[in-house]
């Protein structure tokens, strides 16, 4: 049994805790959150102990195999560095950190202490995205040329509105578009140049929305356009890849395997329509299952900490571009560079 401590019982903490409860060979040993009621709700139907602070959990829980950091981004570094003292395996939500300096320090410390660090880039585990990669690998659309992605919905609601504070979340580009930076890099290799536009800060915070359009030029010549939005109502995501011999198109809005709409008999009005795309195992569960397997076998994960860092580099370049209005060229590092 691998004993796991989940730190942070918000949205992602909930997703992760539920996944651990359903995974074989994993024991959800504890959940930390100062909002104890949140942690308690997640602990039901498990032997997990609930703590209001990390230090208390550290003192009381022994033999932790995995610590899983599901905290707001600006707290990742602090808690990864604390965790290094207690475990040999850390899973951390994406983005790895709020800044590249923080990320470098985390990677360095984990390296020194021989602690394995896994970063939860879950899009790699979405079946539709996995299928896209395999279609590309099989050459179904020839050499890729122009890629378009979209991701987003409403402004995220979270603990103390930390998403609304770019100094904590990194804003839409680091938090949301990171998913696509990572996925596109996994398909098309290193990025050469980034150009990006986003809403003015005053505008974004006044309206409680955000929006960004980013253009990437890959070293291979591929051109990608990314839309990130916290200005719409419903969450959706999509990707389109046009190659020399074909197009792959995916739009989550158009995928409707199940849509449930109960009739509201009293008011006569229709109930809320709830669309679902059910899978036997969610991408989040698949991701954590993969990390657990890698921990047991010692194998390299599908998405490495270096991948997580490179995706952050693209995000940071995009943020700089939005600030200075210029294209930002990424350092031509080798595959293994640091």
């Amino acid at each position: 049994m691998l004993r796991v401590l989940v730190v942070g019982a918000g949205t992602m903490g909930g997703v992760h805790a539920r996944a651990y409860k359903s995974l074989h060979g994993v024991e959800l040993a504890g959940i930390v959150d100062p909002r104890v009621e949140k942690a308690e709700a997640l602990a039901v139907n498990s032997s997990a102990k609930v703590f209001s602070g990390f230090d208390e959990a550290a003192a009381k829980l022994k033999n932790l195999d995995v610590i899983d950091i599901c905290l707001p981004t600006h707290l990742h570094k602090e808690y990864v560095l604390k965790s290094v003292q207690l475990t040999k395996n850390i899973i951390c939500e994406k983005p790895l950190a709020r800044s590249l300096e923080e990320a470098r320090e985390m990677i360095e410390v984990c390296g020194k202490k021989s602690v394995r660090l896994f970063v939860a880039h879950v899009v790699r585990f979405f079946p539709e995205y996995k299928r896209i990669r395999s279609l590309l690998d099989k050459g179904k659309i020839g050499s890729p040329a122009v890629v378009r992605t979209t991701r987003g919905g409403a402004f995220p609601k979270a603990w103390e509105n930390w998403y609304g504070d770019p100094s904590k979340s990194g804003g839409l580009i680091l938090d949301l578009l990171l998913h696509d930076f990572d996925f596109l890099r996994s398909c098309f290799g290193e990025v050469k140049r980034v150009f990006a536009k986003t809403l003015k800060r005053e505008e974004a915070s006044k309206e409680m929305i955000d929006y960004a359009l980013v253009t990437l030029r890959f070293q291979s010549g591929v051109i990608a356009h990314l839309e990130g939005t916290w200005a719409h109502q419903n969450f959706s995501y999509g990707i389109e890849i046009a190659g020399r011999d074909g197009i792959i198109e995916y739009d989550s809005k158009k995928i409707s395997p199940l849509s449930y709409q109960p009739r509201n008999k009293k008011s006569g009005a229709g109930g809320v329509k709830v669309p679902e795309s059910p899978l036997a195992s969610s991408p989040y569960r698949e991701e954590l299952k993969h990390f657990i397997e890698c921990i047991i076998s010692g194998k390299e994960p599908l998405v490495t900490v270096l991948d997580a860092y490179r995706a952050m580099e693209i995000a940071m370049a995009a943020i700089i571009s939005t600030e200075n209005g210029l294209p930002v060229t990424l350092g031509g590092h080798s595959e293994k560079g640091g």
Partner: peptide, 8 residues
Amino acid sequence: YAEIGNLL
């Protein structure tokens, strides 16, 4: 600003 290609 533009990224332009001859890719297709």
